[in-house]
């Protein structure tokens, strides 16, 4: 499965490399679009020292961790949100009769390597945030763990969004509210939101495990809702649980799918 994915993604990368100038500009464009978020954060902190109890470097750390996870998930699996187009145009039928997983084919179709620009921007913000924070070595190991868990969580969201499009072929944008919405939601400390929303994101849709709970652990800060500090260590478990749900939903979608017949 991984081999097929790598082969297909590499094919699209070679195709993109045929237009090096366009590729470089689009990569830079992705970094600039991401840079807008940082400009917004800068404007906010030009007006205040603390936002919902957090300072600029802490927000940069939380932003970088979630956006790096999202950008990598988007690079690798973001094209799952194109499935409604495959359904409408009938190309999903072609994928289903090929001897390769339809999930891998949809995810790697039109693989867009220039999305790496966004990851570089987010990674840079994370690095700057971390370097200014003085995190003790005993807790810094959690940073790569939270990024990988975040990638799994966002990939699961893209998969759920793709599965949803089997039902909502005419309105694929609804899925964006969950995928891109999830990325936007985790840009800021969750303490800005209503505690009821944060509870929903902890015990329901586990977006709090992308950067909030593990981030609190790394920062050594108590949870405003009173959850124990080891809650952040549960990120990988939460990510795997959501991934299992997403896999079931995707399978149900593929099973339920009926060709348009054209």
């Amino acid at each position: 499965m991984i081999r097929t994915y790598a082969l297909l993604a590499w094919t699209w990368t070679r195709a993109a490399a045929q237009y090096p100038v366009s590729f470089a500009l689009m990569t830079a464009g992705g970094a600039v679009v991401g840079g807008l978020d940082i400009a917004a954060i800068w404007v906010i902190f030009a007006n205040t020292d603390r936002l919902a109890g957090f300072g600029l470097t802490e927000v940069m750390f939380l932003y970088g961790a979630s956006q790096l996870a999202f950008a990598l998930a988007d690079l690798l699996f973001g094209n799952l949100d194109r499935i409604s187009r495959h359904i409408v145009s009938g190309t999903l039928d072609v994928m289903l009769i090929r001897p390769a997983s339809p999930f891998v084919q949809v995810a790697s179709d039109r693989f867009t390597p220039h999305r790496i620009g966004r990851s570089i921007q987010a990674g840079a913000v994370l690095a700057v945030g971390l370097s200014r924070l003085d995190v003790p070595l005993g807790r810094v190991w959690m940073v790569p763990v939270m990024v990988v868990s975040g990638i799994v969580i966002f990939t699961a969201l893209f998969t759920l969004g793709g599965a949803l499009q089997f039902l909502l072929t005419a309105a694929p944008e609804v899925a964006n509210a969950f995928t891109y919405g999830g990325a936007t939601l985790t840009q800021y400390p969750l303490s800005v939101y209503d505690p009821r929303i944060v509870r929903g994101l902890t015990f329901g849709l586990p977006l709090a495990f992308v950067n909030w709970q593990p981030g609190l652990y790394v920062l050594g800060r108590p949870d405003p809702l009173g959850l124990p500090s080891w809650t952040g260590l549960l990120s990988p478990a939460a990510a795997l649980a959501l991934a299992a749900v997403a896999a079931l939903a995707w399978r149900a979608g593929i099973r339920r799918y009926r060709s348009t017949g054209s």
């Binding site: 909502l168 005419a170 309105a171 944008e173 609804v174 964006n176 509210a177 891109y180 919405g181 936007t184």
Partner: peptide
């Protein structure tokens, strides 16, 4: 209209 309503939903969530 479905696409427009989906757009409205997304705009509302954001």
């Amino acid at each position: 209209w479905a696409a427009a309503l989906a757009g409205a939903f997304t705009n509302t969530v954001f």
